[in-house]
Design a binder for these strands. Structure first.
Lengths: 171, 171
DNA sequence: CCTGCACCTACGAAATCCGTGACGATTGGA
DNA sequence: TCCAATCGTCACGGATTTCGTAGGTGCAGG
């Protein structure tokens, strides 16, 4: 009964400029569904439906589509320390030539959890997750710095992780 | 029927050096459960049980404990671009005095998704997620640089995110 | 020896998931 | 204007899963 999120479709015939990358057909209802699943990835479809004003089946189909499209994924995230990875670092990389092959090589390393091309004094930034100091040293000194195109690196070893959320859209 | 992960308890009376930070050991079976949920956070308990060699109820109780202890959480993660956040940056911060209050202030900002204290030429590193350039500029120039204790900052605007996984333990 | 504790299994009831068919609204073209 | 195609939603029943609870076992401490 409780309306609230009515008129979601008719309210927005064309979307507010779809000039973005390529796939932003995300209406307010889907956003609300994502917020629900960011609070609890296992929340039942019926409960989500009640919260966003949709039937269970509708929620289920939307969630399935969001997953298929790769817009979101539902996963377990863990505290690296508790699973045995005691050394982490952010590594800034200065490179020369085409950055793509370098980035691809970094992406292929399982220890690199996060690879991003940046503007600024670094060309690439990589988050490295390792078991101990020896492991970290090996990854940075033997593997990353050995890549062709890598000119130099600068490491920032993590002392304390203060915040880590996954709440885009939940603002 | 298929054994495989038998004798999980008796096999390891003390663990291979539990000199870790302080959290509990986390045995091989829980690790395997986490791996299953990292592939699909909604996988049914029975399916997980079959994969790791436990009953449905046992898996359910272990998962519940892992969630309660904060060892892991099951959440939806999204591609920031698709949800309308088009500018991201890593910000390195030079600070003076006690770092904790600075880190706490950063943590309180919803735009800061990731806050970590580091060793190296930066004292703190922060990942900022914003809607557009104006938003990013405001957060960095007006909010972060205005914090007491912040001496200077350096920004690395994201050009292309190449990799982002949540696969600790799945190596 | 026995008590307490942590962990696992077993099992029935309730809730959830999933496939399917139908209905209403919107779109594009004759 | 009208018609057909498409998309999103709802309704519903059966299979599956979840959930609470009761009972059994191995281990450490008294």
């Amino acid at each position: 009964m409780q309306s609230e999120v009515v008129a979601s479709r008719s309210a927005d015939p064309k979307g507010p400029r779809s000039r973005s990358g390529g796939s932003p057909p995300l209406d307010a209802v889907s956003l609300a569904i994502i917020e629900q699943l960011q609070e609890d990835g296992r929340r039942p479809y019926a409960a989500i439906g009640k919260a966003v004003g949709l039937s269970e089946a509708a929620v289920r189909q939307r969630v399935q589509k969001l997953l298929d499209q790769g817009v979101m994924q539902i996963v377990a995230v863990t505290d690296p320390l508790t699973v045995g990875f005691r050394r982490q670092a952010m590594v800034g990389i200065h490179a020369e030539g085409d950055l793509d092959p370098v980035a691809d090589a970094l992406t292929a390393m399982p220890e690199c959890e996060y690879v991003v091309m940046t503007a600024g004094s670094f060309d690439l930034m990589v988050e490295v997750v390792c078991e101990d100091d020896d492991h970290l040293l090996e990854v940075i000194n033997q593997r990353i710095r050995a890549l062709p195109g890598v000119r130099s690196t600068e490491s920032f070893v993590y002392l304390k992780l203060k915040k880590q959320t996954y709440m885009w859209g939940t603002r």
